[in-house]
Simulated assay, not measured.
Amino acid sequence: MKNIRVALAGAGNCAWSFAQFVALAQAAPDTRLPGLMCHTLGGYRLADVRIVAAFDVDEAKVGLPLAEAFTAPVISATGFTDLGADRDAPVLPAPVLDGLVGPLASVVRPAAAARDATPEHVAKALVEHEVDVLVIALPTGASRAIRMFAQAALTAGTAVVNCTPEELARDASVSRRFAEAGVVLLGDDLRSHLGATCLHTALIELLLSRGLELQSTYQLNVGGNTDFLNLADAGRSASKFTSKANALRAAGMSDVDGVAGPSGFIGHLADTKLCFANVTAKSVLGSQVSIDIKLTVEDSPNAAGVIANAVRAAKTATDRGLSGAVDAPSPLLFKSPPHGLPESEARAAFLDFAS
């Protein structure tokens, strides 16, 4: 089986955790790592992934090898292990566009090379590095930058994994262009391995399976990494609220008073994320059931486990001659795929695809 050559659009916290997960797998290819749902997916192990390039705009990252870029001041995710085979992958400049709008401008200074970079440079680099899958992990709300990377990948014939809430797979015109070009597109908005949305939707599905009637629900999330700093700007977080609402509706929630989304930036939490969720429902004889949950996770490793599945799913779909938005693996991997499913159905569809 060949390697899967991956490029990262955004060398941030999630990319750092994913790169470490890949490094662990490369060091022990036959070991079943905790949190990895499928040791092989479409015949590919995580150890078969090679990160061959990354794109960023931060002057503390651009022009450096990957391992050094992940020591930049804005990186708050824990370093669990050193990078191995991919440590010297280059971090290339990308056009800034709207990537640093809002609070991020106060902590990231764009590299001179990023000011001069063009979409054509990105597409050319994808071809030169023979990239199979581009993982887009840019700041939420950076619509122009995200769509620029999608177009560059389309031009290069590179499959895309859209970790952001920006609608690409759900956008019928974008999905159609990928389908016509014979290129795979997976998205939208990465669904953390065991995060707030995963837990929340599983709980809703459980209550509905017992015949209860949902009355209200909420999901409030706070954290201290640059993702939460960016989401503190209401103009940047709007698509995240929409994406989470799509996930709850796919779980079976309808006509219910509900709110779910980022609720605050607390710097000293760093990469720790706290979720506070409540579901209230009507049960037998009109009696009420109310469930309160607090979830504490490190945010970026939680994303890495899903990216590990998504890049292999994208390559597998390409190998099978699929193109455009691919339905089968997407409801388990993303909050807002074109066609959502309840958690149990999504898992069954994913495992069937993976086999």
Rank of each mutant, 00 (worst) to 15 (best):
G102C: 06
A85V: 14
P110K: 08
E59R: 15
P90A: 02
A53R: 02
P73E: 08
D82A: 13
G63N: 13
D58W: 14
V52C: 11
G84E: 04
F21T: 13
A27T: 15
P110Q: 09
D88W: 08
L92Y: 02
V96R: 09
A72N: 11
V101P: 13
M37N: 10
A77E: 07
G42Y: 07
G35N: 08
E68Y: 01
R87M: 02
Y44F: 06
A113W: 03
D82N: 12
D30Q: 15
G79W: 05
R115F: 00
A54S: 10
V108S: 05
V107P: 05
V57I: 09
P110C: 06
L24P: 04
V49I: 12
A114T: 04
V101R: 15
L97T: 14
G42L: 08
A105E: 01
D30W: 07
G99K: 14
G79M: 06
A112Q: 14
A111I: 06
P73K: 12
T71I: 03
D58F: 13
P93R: 13
T78A: 07
P29E: 04
E68W: 02
P90H: 04
I51A: 01
V57Q: 02
D56E: 06
F70N: 05
A85F: 12
A111K: 04
E68T: 08
A28M: 09
A111F: 03
H39K: 12
A47H: 13
Q26T: 07
A23H: 01
H39Y: 12
R32K: 08
V96S: 03
A89Q: 05
V22S: 00
A72Q: 11
A117K: 02
E59L: 12
G102S: 06
T78Y: 07
D30S: 13
L46H: 00
D116L: 15
Y44I: 06
A60Q: 15
D56K: 09
V22R: 00
S106V: 02
A94N: 08
V52E: 07
L104A: 00
V74M: 11
R87Q: 09
P119R: 01
A67F: 08
A69H: 03
L33K: 13
P119K: 02
I51W: 01
R45T: 11
A117D: 01
E68L: 10
